[in-house]
Nucleic acid binder design. Structure first.
Lengths: 238, 238
DNA sequence: CGCTACTTTGATATTTTTCAATCTTGGTGG
DNA sequence: CCACCAAGATTGAAAAATATCAAAGTAGCG
């Protein structure tokens, strides 16, 4: 896949129907990207920026051009449940009854397009083809959420972590298929919030994967896959 | 909300933006419902009918008029992970690259509309307003999947079950707001698959909720809520 | 260079899973 | 109409895993 310039917003998703080439489509046309750029604002935000909070009035939808974002909910216990990690070409901030359902934080430095909901709605209703691509995208995110639910239905921490590494790898393959190292820009605490584990369990599961010689942590935010087959086997052994 | 006749297919979802009344919109117009009915086939299926299997070629999308459907995946371990329970006015069977990502089974006797994917796609691209309602619906299902992920990130079985009962209650409130009993048409095994617990744990959690006098099981498929406040408190104590 | 936030490691407690046996219930056929 | 059967559900005891609490170790950043 040719790299897509990020001067203007775009999306990727898999189609409903079979395509001859298995490339992910849903990429917007240059024309559609210009239209989005016209109604939206390009923002460059430092890491750890709070982009919006759960329950706040939702005026915008966001499309990521670069970087990683997490969406999460604060639970009554004080725990933060991470609902998703989002990457370049992903969409987030779809509100319910005019209010955001999650909070959103920049994990790394990010470049996002902030799209006003009202104008986006008008645009989508006028451009049926673009709307279809949004539909594909949201469907794609639904399937991602289902995959995560399957991950969470596992009981063993090393297995959950192995699946998580698989998800991250698949994500990053789109950007750089040759990479044999997986980047984990989020903290262990974020991972714990995503994996439904305690922070300590994530740490121990990491050590366990390393002990089994499946991966090697080059540093806290970078894992090299040592035994791809073994890691995949563990990830698939749900 | 007035009951909607099910002669023709429909959908419900919550809007992105704030509506004066908080009723769930996204309900199709009579005209749109007729268009769907025209391209689709109304099917009446007995309980336990297999509607499609994971990996099969996806020719149709389904809309439920009556009854309950489960979508699930068979895991390598033999466990069945239930990805969703679906009810009247829900949509399922959205494929990826022309193949179903889950299998679908009728839990009860169901009436569904089977919509040919190719024709539906054309229809959506022509009827921008209907497509927007599909977008709302899929977004709604995405949020449901996120809620479930939060449920799964809990560790305690009684808490998970309490949240599940809350979800079921919210679902059934749409149909019959006055009901103080929750119907659980699925088996304990299905619930276990949805909750990421063992069948035995679901059984024990049910007994525990009853012991705490939060609910009373009238029979295996029907629970009466005895202490609504206590049940909600437990469900919210994530 | 030292602080602070993040991470790892250790020991114990809690919870669920697992394996096994028993009990119910709904459907079927004599 | 009743008895039987099989699938589904419950209960019990032991084992396995993670959570929790506590303390020590790292690493990045000013």
């Amino acid at each position: 896949m040719a790299p897509v310039p990020h001067r203007v917003p775009t999306l990727t998703a898999l189609p409903f129907q079979k395509t001859s080439a298995e490339t992910s489509v849903g990429v917007l046309t240059p024309r559609q990207r210009e239209e989005l750029a016209r109604i939206g604002t390009r923002l460059r935000l430092p890491a750890r920026t709070l982009m919006y909070e759960e329950g706040a009035e939702a005026q915008w939808v966001f499309a990521i051009a670069e970087g990683v974002v997490k969406t999460y909910r604060e639970l009554a216990s004080g725990r933060r449940a991470v609902t998703a990690f989002l990457f370049a070409r992903d969409l987030f901030g779809l509100a319910e009854n005019g209010r955001y359902v999650n909070s959103a934080h920049a994990v790394t430095r990010v470049i996002v397009y902030r799209l006003p909901l009202a104008e986006l709605t008008v645009l989508l209703k006028h451009d049926s083809d673009m709307q279809f691509k949004f539909l594909l995208k949201v469907t794609h995110e639904l399937r991602e959420a289902q995959r995560r639910a399957i991950l969470l239905s596992r009981r063993d921490a090393p297995g959950r972590l192995a699946m998580f590494l698989g998800l991250m790898r698949a994500q990053q393959d789109r950007e750089d298929p040759a990479a044999c190292a997986i980047s984990l820009p989020m903290t262990r605490s974020d991972m714990a919030g995503f994996l439904g584990l305690s922070l300590e369990s994530v740490s121990r599961a990491s050590a366990e994967l390393e002990r089994r010689r499946l991966v090697k942590f080059e540093n806290r935010h970078r894992v090299r896959v040592v035994d791809q087959a073994g890691l995949s086997r563990l990830a698939a052994a749900v």
